[in-house]
Amino acid sequence: MSEIERYIAPKKLDDALEALAGGPVTIVAGATDLTPQITGGKLSYKATLMNIQHIEGLNAVTKKGGTKKDGKIRIGALVTVSEIRGNHMLKNHAGILCQAADHFASEQIRNAATIGGNICNASPAGDMIIPFLALGASAELARWQDGSIETRSVPLDEFFTGPGRNMARDDELLTAVTFDVPPENSIGLFRKSGPRPALEISTVSMGISGELTEGTLKNVRVAFGAVGPTALRGKLTEAALEGKILNQEVIQAAALAARKDVSPIDDIRATKWYRTHLIGVFTEELLNNVCQN
């Protein structure tokens, strides 16, 4: 553990970004991922420790516009998993997020863990990443450039570059996650493995979203967790479903495609065989649930 020379807890985003621009900074919010990594020796503190919990404007869930093309939902980086779990607007418009939040760690962790932290930590098994990928969400990154804030938006399926790694530059702060308000006929389902409801690192996890019109799925997005170096989109599965009428044949084809989409490894939590097997099982299960509802 290296020494912390400076501790700051800015209230303004400007100040936070300016500090980030000024040199090596460890960013902390809920600390639920950071602390174990520090104590486990996997990470050490940089010279400046910046607590971003007090930055104004990063802790809101907002919806602008409706369910037509113009609508956007914005979830501030400091919104906690508990807040997502209990958010009525999200339950109505993006229930898959609330489902994932419900299966996230434990109540105490959910109360502290932030969306920004879970995404930036870029775990292949990050439970909140899956529903965001399925929703086609983007990360909003901000930095200090020539005396003002400059932001860019990176689609989440391009954001993750490896286990624990992401595209954000050292001077950038993830300020929010945004996605289009899903249309009225949207479906969204999340599934995670394990006999425990939540306190379980996913052996695999999966999310699926899309628009369902008269039995046909469109704009399908499928995301898988813990089956590769990053959480990933299931492109073959999506192709197997896009524009198809959901029937057992299509579901079977999708399950087969899902097994091809993933490239899991053997580790102490599961073998490649089991992870691949579960992906097929979950794909079938979720699509059958779509059919039944």
Partner: peptide, 10 residues
């Protein structure tokens, strides 16, 4: 555990 049981059934 789940994997052992699933594997045996499979």
């Amino acid at each position: 555990n789940p994997e052992k049981v699933a594997r045996a059934i499979w």
